[in-house]
Simulated scan of single mutants.
Amino acid sequence: MTTHAQSSPDATELVEVFKALANPVRLQLLQWLRDPERNFPAAERIADPYEVGVCVTHIHAKTGLAQSTVSAYMSALERAGLVRSTRVGKWTHYRRDEERIAQLVDVLGRSL
């Protein structure tokens, strides 16, 4: 789901979402990002976790996975349209795309 237009996702886009969510760690990451203030350390933030997102460094620290693995997981979630990334200096921050997630939930509710 590289485009975030207001159109409803098609079957191919939905498959991409399901693939992204089929990995338990990616699903956990999306759940943690739902409440970033609770799940990531406030003392180390350089940006608002809801407006800008959570730094990939903090996500990496929480998961204990290699940073390259975390980056790949976050890229998969972004390709599926579930998160958005923002660069702040040399750091990449991720936040949930709540509008797109709500749209997906609506489509699933009407089509399954």
Rank of each mutant, 00 (worst) to 15 (best):
R26K: 13
T86K: 03
V56F: 04
A47E: 04
A102Y: 07
E51K: 12
R79W: 02
S7R: 11
L14I: 07
T86I: 10
A22R: 11
Y50G: 01
R38Q: 14
L65F: 05
D106S: 10
P41T: 11
A72R: 09
D97L: 01
E44S: 13
L30Q: 01
C55I: 07
L21Y: 01
E44W: 14
L30R: 01
K62D: 07
L27K: 12
L27I: 00
P41H: 06
R87I: 08
V25K: 10
G64M: 04
R95T: 13
R79E: 04
T86V: 08
A42E: 14
E37F: 13
S68Y: 04
I101D: 03
S85L: 06
Q67I: 14
T12I: 12
E37V: 12
N39C: 08
K19S: 15
S71R: 12
H93A: 06
P36Q: 02
N23A: 12
D97Y: 02
V107L: 09
A76L: 00
T86A: 07
R87D: 12
D35W: 09
G81T: 04
N23D: 13
L104M: 15
L21C: 02
E98C: 14
Q28F: 05
A22V: 04
A76C: 03
A61T: 11
A80S: 03
R95L: 10
A61N: 09
N23L: 03
K19D: 14
V15Y: 05
L29C: 03
E16V: 12
V54W: 03
E99Y: 14
E16P: 02
H93N: 06
W32T: 06
D35E: 15
Y50K: 11
L82M: 15
A20F: 01
V25D: 10
G53C: 04
S8G: 14
H93V: 02
R100T: 06
L33H: 00
L29S: 00
H60Y: 07
T69Y: 03
G64I: 08
A76H: 01
M74Y: 05
Q103H: 08
T69F: 03
A76I: 04
T12L: 11
P9C: 04
I101Y: 00
E98N: 11
R79H: 15
G89I: 08
R79T: 10
E98D: 13
G89N: 09
A42C: 13
E44D: 15
S71N: 06
E99G: 11
V107E: 14
R96W: 00
V25Y: 04
F40T: 05
L104E: 00
K19F: 15
D35K: 10
R87Q: 12
L27T: 15
A43C: 14
G53I: 02
L77C: 13
V88G: 05
S75H: 11
